[in-house]
Amino acid sequence: CHSECLGNCSQPDDPTKCVACRNFYLDGRCVETCPPPYYHFQDWRCVNFSFCQDLHHKCKNSRRQGCHQYVIHNNKCIPECPSGYTMNSSNLLCTPCLGPCPKVCHLLEGEKTIDSVTSAQELRGCTVINGSLIINIRGGNNLAAELEANLGLIEEISGYLKIRRSYALVSLSFFRKLRLIRGETLEIGNYSFYALDNQNLRQLWDWSKHNLTITQGKLFFHYNPKLCLSEIHKMEEVSGTKGRQERNDIALKTNGDQASCENELLKFSYIRTSFDKILLRWEPYWPPDFRDLLGFMLFYKEAPYQNVTEFDGQDACGSNSWTVVDIDPPLRSNDPKSQNHPGWLMRGLKPWTQYAIFVKTLVTFSDERRTYGAKSDIIYVQTDATNPSVPLDPISVSNSSSQIILKWKPPSDPNGNITHYLVFWERQAEDSELFELDYCLKGLKLPSRTWSPPFESEDSQKHNQSEYEDSAGECCSCPKTDSQILKELEESSFRKTFEDYLHNVVFVPRKT
């Protein structure tokens, strides 16, 4: 048989008469490798580009789960590009990614509803959504962080984005990388972005840091009482949809009607710091009717980097990364020049730590249904340095008659930039024990000054392991946590139920 035959053949030295091919099969003959313009397919066939392209389009058009959109890589027609490569849609070739590779997620039936953290986790790592997304989240724990972890990498949506009755959302900033909504599939009414009845939605994105392009379709905003109209108009300008909307697409009466839409800028007039305090004062603000001013709200939190936005980490279910302080308005003076500047002394802060701070007014709604208010920009203030805590785990070892090696770990709280350490030492008198000992005694162990690591005695271990207080009263049991108490109650309830079950099964009433 021919060298490319495997198993047997019907005619000697003829690659077209093989029972099976050793390498690849091409047009009725066995070959060692697939010549151009053919590609290896499933490690035994040679196919042309049209064959591989037909497989790709067949799966793409069917949208069946589990099928493969075949691509070409290293002269092979394979189910998908290997790690580190992405497909070129024009020629199906796998090309190296520039940075992290995109991950295209194809949605069944063309859309997916995100109504819980669990459903959001199914899209973790996706960068391109081939379909439409509907966000409908009523509640949950730590929602802002969970949504950002699972949806934060999405850069492109081919269909539309719909935010509907998501009472738990305060902001859409968890879509931190969303840059493009194509609108290839539109919501009824030709809408590519749809926001309806979101009672706590206050911000779409921080438009000073976020760009969003909507290729096709219109915007729809109705019944978002805490979303200011200025935020919607800003989205029109940034996304390129200005002029597409009709009169009733953006409701003037049901958007922002319960919001404090600040239209003035508060400026800080005085800032002073110490290692654990920050004193702030800002310019006074009074609405047209000074009785509408209820006070100020001061927001602050630790910020290692200057990239904080107002609604980071917030949701309507209680999660809030900001510390909020309510401040009463100052006494009002008739003389504008003698107006008191409101302020606040922030206490209990960490030394040498940068804080993000902003302040906003708290006002009631005027009778004319106009909203007044003022808010400052987010500023960054760093507390002063102070003395560091003591170095940890000092170790001293003498390696000769004239040297001592000293080692330690950095302090747990540096409280500033540590530039150097101060080492103090003092000579001590020799131990009298060394002169009084009889060095001729056998088995004498000389006193040693070398360091030995501390260890816990058996008594201390027994005390720590004991669940009861000892007789001397030195140790006591740790208080039980809520989960331990709940577990004990469940076990007790189970024992009672099981005992009742045994009584009912074992003891049967005697027939009379």
Rank of each mutant, 00 (worst) to 15 (best):
E187Q: 08
K209T: 12
N200F: 07
L123T: 03
L212E: 00
H106M: 13
K375A: 05
S274N: 15
I327P: 02
F174H: 05
L252H: 10
N224W: 00
E237M: 12
N263R: 10
E246D: 11
Y380I: 02
N142D: 09
P304G: 03
F299S: 02
L298I: 06
I214Q: 03
C105R: 01
F311A: 14
T361N: 04
K301Q: 05
A385W: 06
S366L: 01
N307R: 01
L153T: 11
N340W: 13
N340S: 08
E155T: 06
W352S: 14
F193M: 12
F268P: 01
F311N: 14
N141R: 06
V390I: 14
L204P: 02
V128W: 14
T215S: 13
R165T: 15
Q339M: 08
L143S: 14
L392C: 10
S333A: 05
A144N: 03
T371F: 05
Y194C: 15
S274V: 03
D315S: 11
F221A: 15
F290N: 14
N255W: 05
L229D: 04
L345P: 05
I232P: 02
M346V: 05
W344Y: 03
V363L: 07
P336I: 04
I357G: 01
S319G: 08
V104W: 13
M297W: 14
E231L: 09
K253N: 07
Q199E: 14
P388V: 15
I135S: 00
D312M: 13
A145N: 09
A385T: 13
G313Y: 07
L392Y: 13
I232C: 09
E155R: 15
E231M: 09
C228V: 04
R182Q: 04
P304T: 10
A145G: 06
R176T: 10
K253Y: 09
Q121G: 04
D206Y: 04
V390T: 14
S239H: 02
P388W: 07
S402C: 03
D335C: 04
Q245C: 07
R347M: 08
V104A: 09
R165F: 15
D206V: 08
L172M: 13
I278T: 01
L107C: 12
I157E: 01
C126A: 01
L362Y: 14
G125H: 13
L298M: 10
E264G: 06
G139W: 06
D315E: 03
W344P: 00
D315M: 07
L266S: 00
T309M: 02
K267R: 09
L204K: 01
C261M: 01
V381Q: 13
P411D: 04
G313Q: 13
A144Q: 11
L172I: 14
I214E: 00
R244N: 03
Q339A: 08
V104G: 03
P336T: 09
R370Q: 07
R332S: 10
L204F: 09
S401R: 13
H222I: 02
T323H: 14
C105G: 00
L180T: 10
I214G: 01
A385L: 01
Q216V: 09
E283N: 11
F193W: 05
K242R: 11
V117M: 14
D328E: 15
G131F: 01
L147K: 00
P288S: 10
D328G: 02
T127C: 06
T273G: 03
P336L: 07
G343F: 03
I232G: 01
I163A: 02
V238Q: 08
P351I: 06
F275S: 13
E368S: 13
D335G: 03
E146A: 13
Q258V: 10
S396I: 01
P342L: 08
E368V: 15
S192R: 01
R281I: 14
G343L: 08
H233F: 08
C126M: 01
G131H: 01
N399C: 03
E302M: 15
T371I: 15
E184R: 07
N190E: 07
W286A: 13
L143I: 14
A259Y: 04
R281H: 09
D367L: 10
K360M: 04
M297N: 15
I404M: 13
Q314E: 12
G152V: 02
L392T: 08
Y285N: 09
T386R: 06
E262T: 11
Q306E: 03
K267W: 07
V325I: 15
Y160C: 14
R247W: 13
R244S: 06
I114S: 01
K242T: 05
C261P: 02
G139T: 03
L186N: 07
E302C: 10
R202Y: 09
V128C: 06
S398G: 12
S274C: 09
L133V: 11
A195L: 10
A120V: 12
T185M: 08
P288T: 08
F175N: 01
T213Y: 07
I137T: 13
S116I: 13
E156S: 05
S166M: 12
K226I: 10
E187I: 10
Y160V: 03
L293Y: 02
I379H: 04
L345F: 07
W352Y: 02
F311S: 08
E122G: 07
K226D: 14
K218T: 14
F290D: 15
G318P: 11
I404N: 01
Y372L: 12
W205T: 02
T127Q: 09
S132L: 00
Y300W: 08
K350Y: 12
G189L: 14
K226H: 04
A356L: 02
W408K: 00
A356S: 08
I379R: 07
K301D: 05
K103H: 03
L266I: 04
I278P: 00
T241Y: 11
S401I: 07
P410F: 06
N136M: 04
F311G: 05
Q245W: 06
T386V: 06
E155N: 08
N200S: 08
Y160T: 07
I214M: 12
I181L: 06
I271R: 01
T215H: 07
T386L: 13
S338V: 14
F220M: 15
E148P: 08
I357P: 00
T118N: 15
E236P: 01
C126Y: 03
E231Q: 08
P330S: 06
A195T: 05
I327C: 05
F221V: 13
H233M: 00
E155I: 11
Q258T: 13
I135Y: 01
H233D: 06
E111V: 10
A168T: 14
L345H: 07
N307K: 03
E262A: 12
K103G: 14
R244V: 08
F174W: 06
D312I: 14
W286M: 06
H233N: 06
A303L: 04
A144G: 11
I135Q: 00
I395S: 06
K301I: 11
W352K: 15
G240Y: 15
Y194Q: 09
T371C: 01
T353W: 02
H222E: 10
I134V: 11
